[in-house]
Amino acid sequence: MQHNLLILISLLIILSNLFLLGSSRTRAMLRGIAAQGVLLSILPFLFPMHKSGLVSIIVPAVLSITIKAILIPYFLHRVIQRVNTENALNPYIGYPVSVIIGLLISYGSFLFIEKLPFSYLSISPFTTSAAFASILIGMLIISTRRNVIAQIIGYLVFENAGFILGISISSTMPLFIEIGIMLDLLAGIFIMVVAVSRIHILFDSVGTQKLERLNK
């Protein structure tokens, strides 16, 4: 049962990644990332063997659902409302192509996960490979999207991957550090959101093409 649940959640995470890659609308992406946050908060309950005591299971779960599924999507929702973001910002790689790339990445991580040195640590290769695919997909979103909000969401995908890995292969972090990690993430996103509103005020756009004056 627990094994099946892990498979299901990994699968849903992969599908939500593909959804994020394929959706052009930032609001839709927001739903996707909030859904991912909910999925993540189930994970701590499925890896009880890594945890000592109920508190160390419940705290990460509660933190993840409040921060990743509620607070961060709420911040982003507010900023999307404020900046009225344009959806039609052509990404560097088109949506269908990036979904196909995402599919291949996911498949690839299924294939190769056993060859990586940490596969023996995890009881569920499914989860680990979903996490590994998320790392790459998050980076793909960050590097191919021209919309700063989409980039933030890519960063969140990437962070979620860290969370999944953390939950599924290691657990030795003291609780206060896990809380610190979550608060860092929250503060980071908050700062990014503030930056996005400033970008919007200054450039009247949240596209990154206007953020390309500094180079060399």
């Binding site: 992969i14 599908l15 593909l18 394929g22 269908p96 979904v99 599919l103 996911s106 498949y107 299924f110």
Partner: peptide, 14 residues
């Protein structure tokens, strides 16, 4: 339909 295809392909790969 493309999204449906992607899901179908994921199943096929698995």
């Amino acid at each position: 339909l493309f999204s449906a295809g992607i899901i179908a392909f994921l199943g096929f790969f698995l």
